[in-house]
Deep mutational scan, measured.
Amino acid sequence: MIVFVRFNSSHGFPVEVDSDTSIFQLKEVVAKRQGVPADQLRVIFAGKELRNDWTVQNCDLDQQSIVHIVQRPWRKGQEMNATGGDDPRNAAGGCEREPQSLTRVDLSSSVLPGDSVGLAVILHTDSRKDSPPAGSPAGRSIYNSFYVYCKGPCQRVQPGKLRVQCSTCRQATLTLTQGPSCWDDVLIPNRMSGECQSPHCPGTSAEFFFKCGAHPTSDKETSVALHLIATNSRNITCITCTDVRSPVLVFQCNSRHVICLDCFHLYCVTRLNDRQFVHDPQLGYSLPCVAGCPNSLIKELHHFRILGEEQYNRYQQYGAEECVLQMGGVLCPRPGCGAGLLPEPDQRKVTCEGGNGLGCGFAFCRECKEAYHEGECSAVFEASGTTTQAYRVDERAAEQARWEAASKETIKKTTKPCPRCHVPVEKNGGCMHMKCPQPQCRLEWCWNCGCEWNRVCMGDHWFDV
Rank of each mutant, 00 (worst) to 15 (best):
158 Q>H: 05
26 L>Y: 00
458 M>E: 15
330 V>M: 11
315 Y>M: 06
168 T>G: 06
176 L>W: 02
458 M>V: 04
176 L>G: 02
190 N>S: 11
193 S>P: 08
96 E>A: 10
272 L>A: 02
465 V>A: 15
458 M>L: 15
410 T>N: 09
267 Y>M: 05
75 R>F: 13
324 V>P: 03
276 Q>K: 09
107 L>N: 15
290 V>P: 15
123 L>K: 15
351 T>I: 14
8 N>R: 01
182 C>P: 00
21 T>V: 04
385 G>V: 08
275 R>W: 01
351 T>K: 07
438 Q>H: 05
306 I>V: 08
258 V>P: 01
213 G>E: 07
336 G>K: 07
249 L>F: 13
270 T>P: 02
277 F>Q: 00
143 Y>F: 15
86 D>S: 11
435 K>I: 12
109 S>H: 12
337 C>V: 03
102 L>M: 11
80 M>K: 10
464 D>H: 15
324 V>L: 07
230 A>Y: 09
43 V>G: 01
349 K>M: 12
112 L>C: 13
246 S>E: 06
399 E>W: 11
168 T>Y: 08
235 N>P: 02
234 R>H: 08
374 E>S: 07
200 H>A: 13
72 R>Q: 15
335 P>F: 07
24 F>V: 07
320 A>H: 11
243 D>C: 13
268 C>E: 01
418 C>L: 01
452 E>K: 02
263 C>P: 01
460 D>E: 05
214 A>G: 11
164 V>R: 00
371 A>R: 08
374 E>Y: 06
451 C>W: 15
463 F>D: 01
436 C>M: 02
102 L>G: 11
366 R>V: 11
170 R>D: 05
291 A>N: 11
354 G>N: 12
211 K>N: 13
174 L>I: 14
120 A>Q: 13
220 K>C: 10
382 E>G: 10
250 V>Y: 02
299 K>Y: 06
441 C>V: 02
109 S>M: 05
253 C>T: 00
8 N>A: 02
255 S>A: 12
54 W>D: 12
136 S>N: 12
258 V>M: 02
338 G>R: 04
290 V>E: 00
268 C>G: 10
347 Q>K: 13
141 S>P: 07
323 C>R: 15
302 H>F: 08
171 Q>Y: 05
296 S>A: 03
125 T>M: 07
334 R>F: 06
118 G>D: 14
214 A>P: 02
374 E>A: 08
